[in-house]
Computed example of a mutant assay.
Amino acid sequence: MDTGIVRAWVDGWAVSRGAAPPVEKPWGFTVDVGLPGHVTRHVLLDADEPLVRGLAETVAAPGTWLKACVAPEVMSSWLTPAWTLRAPGFLMSAPLRPSVTDLPAGYRLRAWSRGGVTRALVLDKDGAFAARGQTACPSGSGSVVFDQIETAPAHRRRGLGRAVMHNLADAAIAAGARTGVLAATADGRGLYESLGWTTHAPLTGVFLDPAGTGR
């Protein structure tokens, strides 16, 4: 696994979510997020069973997350039932290219930047939410992280996600970014592959449930 892609994703994700700057560890990175169900996340590089089991044994705080580039069934087998498995994800990247943002009739897109984060919002003719996404460009990295790309169920399969991605990519290119990085869901992976993105590895997340329900 290319650790540079992982580092770019961690740095950009932290900016996008307003989290603390990542702290380097011998095994990866720790990010303080500060939410009740997501207090701290540990992102592991070159994860294997001894590393995951050893780190998990030192963690007792609910709301702690572990992320690693391993398959979910493998990650799950290394942990006790106290850890809740999230839906599988995928770490992806792509070279950025200028594009045309086309919206179907009846939709409008608004974009703005603040605090190092650029957001794109699509509304329907009544002003209701239709789609959104955001990016963060860590200073000097040449990479941009795409995050929270979402289309409302009633507005899917109309090209809105593609329009959001194109708009955000063009803004990132204008800001000097050359490469896009993201963590895709299983549902979103098809959209990104259709836009020329490459899957590098599975990206699995587990967390200690504050409710104590486990898997």
Rank of each mutant, 00 (worst) to 15 (best):
R7G: 01
A211C: 07
T84A: 12
V74L: 15
V206Y: 02
K67G: 04
M1N: 05
A172C: 10
L168I: 04
S113Q: 14
R114F: 13
F129H: 11
V181E: 01
P62K: 02
A105S: 11
L103D: 01
V52K: 07
T118W: 14
G28L: 08
T3P: 00
D124S: 08
S77L: 01
T185C: 11
T64P: 05
H42N: 10
L85I: 05
G196R: 02
V52T: 06
W83G: 10
S16P: 06
R189T: 04
P26H: 13
R178N: 04
L45Y: 04
A171K: 06
G106W: 02
D32E: 11
A131T: 05
G37T: 04
R97D: 15
L208S: 09
D46R: 12
W112F: 15
A20F: 02
Q148F: 14
S143V: 01
G180N: 06
S77H: 05
A19R: 07
Y192P: 02
A60G: 09
A211G: 09
T64S: 14
A47P: 06
C137E: 06
E57L: 10
A128I: 11
D147E: 11
L123I: 03
D124C: 09
T198I: 02
V122F: 03
V23K: 10
Y107L: 10
H166W: 01
G161M: 00
V100I: 14
L35G: 01
P104W: 14
R86L: 08
F90D: 03
A19Y: 15
P202I: 08
G127L: 13
V70I: 10
L55P: 15
L91M: 13
F129P: 03
G176R: 00
L121G: 05
H42R: 12
P50C: 13
L79K: 07
A201L: 09
A154L: 12
A14F: 14
G159Y: 10
T101S: 11
W197Y: 09
I149H: 08
R53V: 03
G127M: 13
V39P: 01
R17K: 13
R215Q: 11
A94P: 04
F146Q: 01
